[in-house]
Amino acid sequence: MSSQSTSIKPLPSEPDDQSADSYAAASRWRLVWRRFRRHKLAMVGLVVTILVYVIAVFGEVIAPYSNSHLNADYAYAPPQQLQIVDTSGDSWDWGLHVHGYTMERDPETLEQEFTTDPDNQVPVGFFVQGEQYELLGLIPWDRHLIGPVASDTPMYLLGADQLGRDQLSRIIHGTRISMSVGLVGVGMGFVLGILLGGISGYFGGRVDTIIQRAVELFMSLPTLPLWLGLAAAVPREWGSVERYFAITLVLSLVAWTGLARDVRGRFLALREEDFVTSARLDGTGEPRIIFGHILPSFTSHLIATLTLAIPSMILAETALSFLGLGLQPPTVSWGVLLQEAQNIRVISTAPWLLLPGAAVVIAVLAMNFLGDGLRDAADPYKH
Rank of each mutant, 00 (worst) to 15 (best):
Y101A: 00
V361L: 12
W256V: 00
Y202V: 03
L295E: 01
I171M: 14
D262K: 11
F114L: 03
D16G: 06
S200G: 03
R345I: 07
D372F: 12
L337E: 00
F245Y: 14
F190T: 08
D152I: 11
W33H: 13
L46M: 08
G373V: 04
T318Y: 07
L268D: 04
D262I: 14
P118S: 07
G239W: 13
R213D: 04
G324F: 04
Y101Q: 00
S321G: 02
S151D: 14
V234K: 07
L325T: 01
T305M: 15
G373Q: 01
I171G: 02
Y23D: 08
T209L: 13
V276F: 12
D274T: 13
V336W: 01
L217Y: 13
A279G: 00
G335V: 00
T102M: 06
L11P: 05
V122S: 01
L259I: 14
F245C: 05
G137C: 11
L370K: 06
D117C: 10
S22P: 04
V254S: 07
G89W: 12
V360P: 00
V98L: 00
L370G: 00
L354D: 05
I347H: 15
G189V: 07
A341C: 03
S278Y: 13
E216G: 10
D142I: 08
T223H: 09
R213F: 14
V234S: 02
P356D: 04
Q339D: 02
E273F: 15
A232T: 14
H383P: 06
F322M: 00
I210P: 02
Q212F: 14
I211Q: 02
Q167C: 09
V207G: 04
L138Q: 08
